[in-house]
Design a binder for these strands. Sequence first.
DNA 1: TGAGAAGATCTTGCATGCAACAAGCCTACG
DNA 2: CGTAGGCTTGTTGCATGCAAGATCTTCTCA
Lengths: 226, 226
Amino acid sequence: MQDLLSPEKGDQAALLDRIRNLVLSGEFPPGANLPEAYLAQEFDVSRTPVREALKQLQHEGLVEIRPKVGSFVREPTRREIIELFQLKESLEGLAASLLARRGEVRELGILRRNLDDSEAAAQSRDKEAYARLVHEFHWAIVRGSDNFKLVEHYERLMNQLAYQRLVLRTVEHPGRIAASTQEHRAVLKMIEHKDPFGAESAMRNHVFASSREALATDSTSESKST
Amino acid sequence: MQDLLSPEKGDQAALLDRIRNLVLSGEFPPGANLPEAYLAQEFDVSRTPVREALKQLQHEGLVEIRPKVGSFVREPTRREIIELFQLKESLEGLAASLLARRGEVRELGILRRNLDDSEAAAQSRDKEAYARLVHEFHWAIVRGSDNFKLVEHYERLMNQLAYQRLVLRTVEHPGRIAASTQEHRAVLKMIEHKDPFGAESAMRNHVFASSREALATDSTSESKST
DNA sequence: TGAGAAGATCTTGCATGCAACAAGCCTACG
DNA sequence: CGTAGGCTTGTTGCATGCAAGATCTTCTCA
């Protein structure tokens, strides 16, 4: 990770990323207030571009703006997390299907290498590295779909899931790592076989299984069951 | 349609909708410039909230902001439309699947009534009404999924597709109407049978078929084939 | 006549100022 | 002692002013 509060001035799009990272990294935990004046001073800009960025983040679902009160980091409810995982399953399934249809592309090499690295990380109990590799595996498939609109929606989705917080917890389960790697292999195999239906199915199974784990370990907000 | 340029002052969220409608309705056609000063005067606000709204629309993919130049209505390329239809297929498939899982809910009544009305509209050759009913059918299924995040993403997707422009063209094909109604019936039947897999499959088939038609009639921008 | 450069002009991008409103505090009264 | 009402304070929401940059026009020179 790069320094998150570096005062170097950047672009206007960079400001949005900076503030988003403040939220995603947990620097500002759920419920925290994000005062415009503070952020403006911190990033050495005026309140106007900060306001624009905060509005974007509200639109992305990361921030809640209460009129005349302030901007607060939004805590996704358990129900929302379930909903987002259902979407994740669907979108990643589509991505795997599209990738399988594409044939031999550069992304396959990335995936193969990723799997080898993942197993190495699992063997050496390097949870940090493993979590990162899992993340990269999923992203490689989505990017490999060669559908940029899908990538856009997926990015939005993952931001809303605040994935960085969830993945690490999931990895705590020792049994899950082995199963997850197995499922990744199954997905890759289907893609290599150019089997769109098989790839989609394998991917969806995998996402479903891992979401079960994530939700089991999840301790988010209300216990209001669905 | 309500008056799109009424100068009555509204909320700040209403301003976003107003400008979005200007784009979606075709009042400002693809490629058109959206000058901040003009919009500010037209809606009787200052440039600041207009700027915020335009930035949102850029984020939604409807508008392109060229720095220091201006905001322009974005023309989706043919490739983007294909990508968006792939997403549409996936999301509506998910929606149908989730709805089928829910059992007898209020939405089923809406769908049944919609189908009757659709056939009536088809018989009386009322293309306008038919297009509206098709639109409502799809939305009813998405809303019936009871997954609000899905609804959010779907809304975004449909905005990007500028669906209002496309549907009417599709309906021009006389053979398509009969087939489409047939497919709608098939989807509803699967939902009534509480068959998530069947419903998803039927929905995806339907979306795929109708997207083929839409793309065949489409005359968008570059003919750069994929 | 055509091409290139310099200037004019128009638009955006951002900083700042001010008004409006919400939340918390303090006081007064029951 | 508790509660209700008004005030204070701090923050947001928006209008406006100004500077920077991009485009277009025009002038000059080959």
